[in-house]
Design a protein around this nucleic acid. Sequence first.
DNA 1: CGGCCGATTGAGACAAGTCAACTCGGGTGG
DNA 2: CCACCCGAGTTGACTTGTCTCAATCGGCCG
Lengths: 229, 229
Amino acid sequence: MRDGLEFSALDTEDATDPEKGGSKPTLGLKMSIVRQLKPGETLYCEGETATYCFEVLNGVLKEYQVLEDGRREISEFYRKDDLFGYCAVTERLETVEAVTSVAVRCIPRDAFFRRMEQSPAFSRSIVETLIERLARAHSRMLLLGRMRAHQRVASFLLRLADDAGDDECVIEMSRQDIADHLGLTIETVCRVLTDFKKRHLIDMPVARRFTVRDSRGLEAEADTLSSLN
Amino acid sequence: MRDGLEFSALDTEDATDPEKGGSKPTLGLKMSIVRQLKPGETLYCEGETATYCFEVLNGVLKEYQVLEDGRREISEFYRKDDLFGYCAVTERLETVEAVTSVAVRCIPRDAFFRRMEQSPAFSRSIVETLIERLARAHSRMLLLGRMRAHQRVASFLLRLADDAGDDECVIEMSRQDIADHLGLTIETVCRVLTDFKKRHLIDMPVARRFTVRDSRGLEAEADTLSSLN
DNA sequence: CGGCCGATTGAGACAAGTCAACTCGGGTGG
DNA sequence: CCACCCGAGTTGACTTGTCTCAATCGGCCG
């Protein structure tokens, strides 16, 4: 099966008139299609042939790899305006699945790469996206390879709050997703969170929502500075 | 200090005649310079301004990030023909240091990016390199986040052997480097290695050289299949 | 040949994992 | 509208893999 061939709900956009131009000036790609996904639905799976690239219109998706025994590692969460799925030569190496309800624009890969040939500015912006993503990958390696549980969770919360641009913040993903993103178990994530609550670094009235209460303290927790305690 | 400004030993190549063209047809970049490094010498450090990109002519380098308390994570080892150092917008996020004696070609970043503007083929090849490196980063995240010590070491040995294209293989880096690459400690790396020796998966007459003896067994060790034991 | 640094081995400590019980909150059906 | 149910989340007791600290080994260079 090839990705993007089975749309539960689709809605073509500017697919008819090649001269019309994309509705998104930054991409300006023709022939794009919008696909809607419900939470838990997968967009594509490891092993499939890559035929589309995607742009998140709204919602959150997760990209992951699985080990034979079921252990899972979520490499990225994608949010509004993130571009993904072009990072495959032919075959998908990871699976991408909706975390929340999601709308993604599907762009045929060949159109995408043709655009890259034609526009140096476009390919430069792609290179920059890739470079930034690689930098993030490196800091995640540091996190996974060298940080303690409480550092990992603190970094994660800070990133969530930062992305939200607000101290009050919704946690869209499950504890299992967080654990799989941080290389921990559900139980450890919970324990660290309740520890942070008890120490008034965060408020968390319900499981899927939190507020940063002591951002300085949380940052100290995320840095290794906390090892001075 | 900006990288590449203090050359202990340098040897300009085609820096005089812009029409001469690079000696390396795949790059064809003018104004490049070759720099020699001794083991342990650093090419550039985190925080410096990025002014050059590099191509490995021979030898092995390591790229790493450090945590405040000194814990270190080696994100990549670079070998002959690897291109690196362009993955920074302005400021270096990692440090790169010679593992063995090394020769690298230094390419001014602006020349590099100008070349990208001019040649779609060149920028496509850069995009492909980046994509491949990102894929490697993802599989390393899986390793760091979800694999056991013996799986990590087995994967590492298999990669070494694969890169060498030979079952007999030199280990250029120290145990500390390996540990920092795998998110383990020196001691754990040693223990796993002696365990592999005892079980005749590998031979390792001296610390810096090994032979794969039972590649199937080693692969089983690298996969999570070994959790069936 | 001796010294030194990297590598190896051992013993004990500790962070995180496992397994299992329990709670909570949201959704559904009566 | 309420009560129940179910799955996600939390907490606890115990296990274990890896780390830490410390001692010893061994190859390489002067």
